Amino acid sequence: MRRILLSLTILAATGAAGAWFVLRPEPLPADALAGLEADAVRGEQVFWAGGCAACHSAEKAEGADRLVLKGGRRFPSPFGTFVAPNISNDPAAGIGTWTALGLANAMLRGVSPEGRHYYPVFPYASYARATLQDVVDLRAFLATLPADPSPSAPHEVAFPYNIRLGLGLWKRLHLDDGWVVAGDLNQAETRGRYLVEALGHCGECHTPRGGLGAMDRNRWLAGAPIPGGKSRFPNLTPAKLTWSEADIVAFLTTGFTPDYDSVGGAMAEVVDGLSHLAPSDRAAIAAYLKRVVPAE
């Protein structure tokens, strides 16, 4: 009997060790950012391209208040309601003590400074394609923004989705830093791909998802239901978005469609962020969208 119990104990320990190996968080190497120098001016462009204010500022924040990243916005989903955390420069409530490597682990690997998995509602499935230089620059810019002491609210996620260790398996199945639109792209299209697929994380809203919440890359940007709502994020592929590149650029700059309708909802904040970018970046996004595979 003691031999049987010992064997079962060894098997259980081996199984637990194997499960931990598969499900464990995998941060970047400690020297991943070696040789990179931060530039806060470039980081501001990364900030606006990445849509940080659209999730982490207060609801309906305008002007300078959009730079106060106190968190608190609620995002319903089939898995529960997620609450945007405070990522202001506050050392206790926010990320004031984070290093650039800590931010890189969060954005590219979905791993917290404490070594825990983040939920993919934080769009690291897209940010995984971002360059380390952009993350270093972004960290420098975030350090210039106001600190806010508002505590982050917990996510409202029930069992089994509240078991974060299971996210290790989700990452192994779905975390992919490869480009969706491949092929021979010109310089503008390549830049647009980076802005759309990586920093802008446009697919997170505009791409349908499977049962485990991963983006369906076979229907990239084909439109998707708005969680908790009755409408849909629109189809951005050429099958539906038939505007000219000039029309797309104008929309991303002013928020007005070719029919003189105005942007609303969450997209208004996206346009506000993109309006801070260089005109060539908005043109690059338009060029890229014309290269996306049409999807009805």
Results as ranks from 00 to 15, higher is better:
5 L>Q: 08
7 S>Q: 11
7 S>N: 06
7 S>D: 08
7 S>H: 02
7 S>A: 15
8 L>T: 07
8 L>P: 01
9 T>E: 06
9 T>N: 13
10 I>N: 06
10 I>E: 06
10 I>Q: 11
11 L>A: 15
11 L>T: 09
11 L>C: 13
11 L>S: 11
11 L>N: 03
12 A>P: 03
13 A>L: 15
13 A>K: 02
14 T>M: 15
14 T>W: 13
14 T>S: 15
14 T>K: 07
14 T>Y: 11
14 T>R: 11
15 G>T: 09
15 G>H: 12
15 G>I: 00
15 G>A: 15
16 A>Q: 09
16 A>C: 12
16 A>N: 08
17 A>D: 01
17 A>S: 14
17 A>V: 04
17 A>W: 11
17 A>P: 01
18 G>E: 00
18 G>H: 03
19 A>T: 11
19 A>L: 15
19 A>R: 10
20 W>E: 09
21 F>V: 02
21 F>T: 12
21 F>C: 08
21 F>R: 14
21 F>Y: 14
22 V>T: 12
22 V>P: 10
23 L>G: 05
23 L>T: 03
23 L>A: 15
23 L>W: 00
24 R>Q: 11
24 R>V: 00
24 R>P: 02
24 R>F: 04
24 R>L: 00
24 R>N: 10
25 P>G: 06
25 P>R: 05
26 E>A: 14
26 E>T: 14
27 P>H: 06
27 P>E: 06
27 P>Q: 05
27 P>L: 09
28 L>V: 02
28 L>T: 07
29 P>A: 12
29 P>I: 03
30 A>Q: 14
30 A>S: 13
30 A>E: 14
31 D>H: 10
31 D>K: 06
31 D>C: 04
32 A>W: 02
32 A>H: 06
32 A>C: 01
32 A>D: 05
33 L>V: 00
34 A>P: 03
34 A>E: 14
34 A>T: 13
34 A>Y: 06
34 A>C: 01
35 G>N: 07
35 G>S: 07
36 L>D: 02
36 L>T: 08
36 L>C: 08
36 L>E: 02
37 E>T: 13
38 A>C: 01
38 A>D: 00
39 D>A: 09
39 D>H: 10
40 A>L: 07
40 A>W: 00
40 A>G: 04
41 V>S: 10
41 V>Q: 14
42 R>W: 07
42 R>Q: 08
42 R>E: 00
43 G>C: 05
43 G>A: 04
43 G>N: 06
43 G>S: 05
43 G>V: 07
43 G>P: 06
44 E>Q: 13
44 E>K: 11
45 Q>E: 14
45 Q>W: 10
45 Q>T: 08
46 V>N: 03
47 F>Y: 15
47 F>K: 05
48 W>H: 15
48 W>T: 01
48 W>N: 09
49 A>C: 02
49 A>N: 05
49 A>G: 13
51 G>I: 05
52 C>N: 05
52 C>Y: 02
